[in-house]
Simulated assay, not measured.
Amino acid sequence: MAESKAFRPNDCTCFKEAVCIDAERIYDSCSDKDCLEDLQVFFSDKTQPIIDKAASIKCKKVKVINVCVDVESVPFNKGFYSVDMTFYFLVELSAYLSPGTPAVNCCGISYFSKKVILYGSEANARVFSSHSGCCSNNEQMTAMPNAVVQIVDPICLACRYVECPAKTCCPGSVIPCQICTQVGGNFQDVQVSKEVYITLGLFTIVQLQRKVQMMIPAYDFCIPDKESEYSTGDPCEMFKKIQFPMEDFFPPRLSEFRDDCGSQNG
Results as ranks from 00 to 15, higher is better:
1 M>A: 14
7 F>T: 11
9 P>I: 06
9 P>G: 06
10 N>E: 15
14 C>L: 13
17 E>K: 11
23 A>R: 07
26 I>Y: 05
28 D>K: 04
28 D>T: 05
29 S>N: 07
29 S>K: 02
34 D>N: 11
35 C>G: 13
35 C>F: 07
36 L>A: 04
37 E>Q: 14
38 D>K: 15
46 K>H: 06
47 T>A: 11
52 D>A: 01
58 K>N: 10
59 C>S: 14
72 E>F: 08
73 S>Q: 12
80 F>D: 00
80 F>M: 02
84 D>C: 03
85 M>D: 03
89 F>L: 02
90 L>Q: 12
92 E>D: 14
92 E>T: 12
93 L>V: 04
94 S>P: 04
96 Y>S: 10
98 S>M: 12
101 T>V: 12
101 T>I: 08
102 P>M: 03
103 A>M: 05
103 A>W: 06
105 N>G: 07
112 F>T: 02
113 S>G: 10
114 K>V: 14
117 I>K: 13
118 L>Q: 04
121 S>V: 02
125 A>Q: 09
127 V>R: 12
127 V>G: 00
127 V>I: 13
127 V>T: 06
131 H>Y: 11
132 S>F: 13
137 N>C: 09
139 E>G: 01
140 Q>N: 06
141 M>Q: 10
147 A>Q: 01
148 V>F: 00
148 V>M: 07
158 A>Q: 11
159 C>A: 12
160 R>M: 11
162 V>S: 08
162 V>A: 06
165 P>W: 01
166 A>E: 13
166 A>S: 14
168 T>W: 10
169 C>T: 14
169 C>W: 11
170 C>N: 15
172 G>F: 00
175 I>Y: 03
176 P>M: 04
179 I>Q: 04
180 C>Q: 15
181 T>Q: 13
190 V>D: 04
195 E>V: 14
200 L>H: 01
203 F>Y: 08
206 V>E: 07
210 R>F: 08
213 Q>A: 09
214 M>L: 10
214 M>E: 08
214 M>Y: 00
216 I>G: 12
217 P>G: 06
219 Y>V: 07
220 D>L: 12
223 I>E: 01
223 I>F: 02
224 P>C: 02
224 P>I: 03
224 P>V: 01
225 D>P: 04
227 E>Q: 13
230 Y>L: 14
231 S>M: 08
234 D>Y: 09
235 P>T: 14
235 P>C: 10
243 Q>C: 10
244 F>A: 03
245 P>V: 04
246 M>S: 12
246 M>Q: 11
248 D>C: 15
255 S>G: 00
255 S>E: 13
257 F>P: 00
259 D>W: 01
260 D>C: 09
262 G>R: 11
266 G>Y: 01
